[in-house]
């Protein structure tokens, strides 16, 4: 793995949201509620997916956990501390990779390290480790414009991993990728995660992606965003693609779809 896991208090390594509500201002100045009394508690070293249709506030909830958004109401406690802003123990992976177009892959990875205060020599070592881990060897000096979508997302993940976060927050990281690339990266993420089990919160609207990766799936509904159900995934680890045919998988998928269908139809209609 990237490095020996830092000594951490297992009881602190968890995420708690208590009665979190939040509003955005529309362009005409009227508030619109995006989160309605959301309460969740995530185990240390667990992989949790936030699953729901567009507009259910799953991305907002992820930003609230990261500290990028301060919720209007409610408290967020991560690793035993109240969240007041982004912190070096949490790392985000974004849907659109968000790499700086003027920096090479390696420089982008080191940029994250630099911002959280990791010295240059150490950040170079970590970047090279993450480059090897994410299969980016040979591409470290490419600019993002010279990389494919999948490669860019690998860099985005490498950037997040190299600050050695306790918590990994992933905002539909594979949402913009083609189906095959997406499946390859899902499997790689599984391997990486199963090696050191960071606490992961993963936003997606793919049922299969949520089942494949997660210990637990939080289903969210819209208008305003709220939690509909929390479902455990009773599939053994290590997971693999082949489990798609497993009756546990197919039953769970059917169950999830039943829960989501009314929401999806409302959004699509």
């Amino acid at each position: 793995m990237l490095s020996a896991a830092p000594a951490m208090d297992v009881h602190n390594a968890q995420i708690v949201c208590k009665d979190v509500s939040h509003w955005f201002l529309k362009s005409d100045g009227t508030p619109i509620q995006v989160l309605d009394r959301v309460s969740i508690s995530l185990e240390p070293h667990s992989f949790t997916s936030l699953l729901g249709p567009s507009g259910c506030g799953k991305t907002t909830l992820l930003r609230v956990i990261d500290g990028l958004i301060r919720p209007a109401v409610g408290t967020v406690i991560v690793g035993g501390e109240a969240v007041t802003g982004p912190s070096a123990n949490r790392a985000m992976v974004f849907q659109e990779h968000n790499l700086l177009p003027w920096k090479t892959a390696q420089e982008n990875i080191r940029f994250g390290c630099k911002l959280v205060g990791i010295p240059a020599s150490e950040s170079l070592r970590r970047a090279n480790e993450a480059i090897a881990l994410m299969g980016l060897n040979g591409f470290e000096h490419h600019l993002p414009s010279q990389l494919s979508g999948g490669m860019k997302q690998r860099v985005g993940i490498a950037r997040a991993l190299s600050i050695h976060p306790q918590f990994l927050l992933m905002d539909e990281p594979f949402g913009a990728l083609d189906a095959q690339t997406r499946e390859v990266l899902q499997i790689e993420l599984l391997k990486i995660w199963e090696a050191d089990r960071k606490t992961v919160v993963f936003v997606t609207h793919s049922l299969d992606e949520a089942i494949l990766l997660s210990d637990r799936i939080v289903i969210m509904g819209t208008r305003p965003g709220h939690i509909k159900a929390v479902i455990d995934v009773d599939l053994p680890r290590p997971r693999s693609d082949d489990m798609r045919a497993d009756p546990v998988w197919t039953n769970l998928r059917r169950h999830l779809w039943q829960l989501l269908k009314p929401e999806m139809i409302e959004v699509a209609g």
Binding site: L68, G85, A91, M92, G112, L115
Partner: peptide, 12 residues
């Protein structure tokens, strides 16, 4: 703004 948010997420 997404790059700004990214930097902020890394505590910039």
């Amino acid at each position: 703004p997404k790059l700004i948010e990214t930097a902020q997420a890394f505590t910039a």
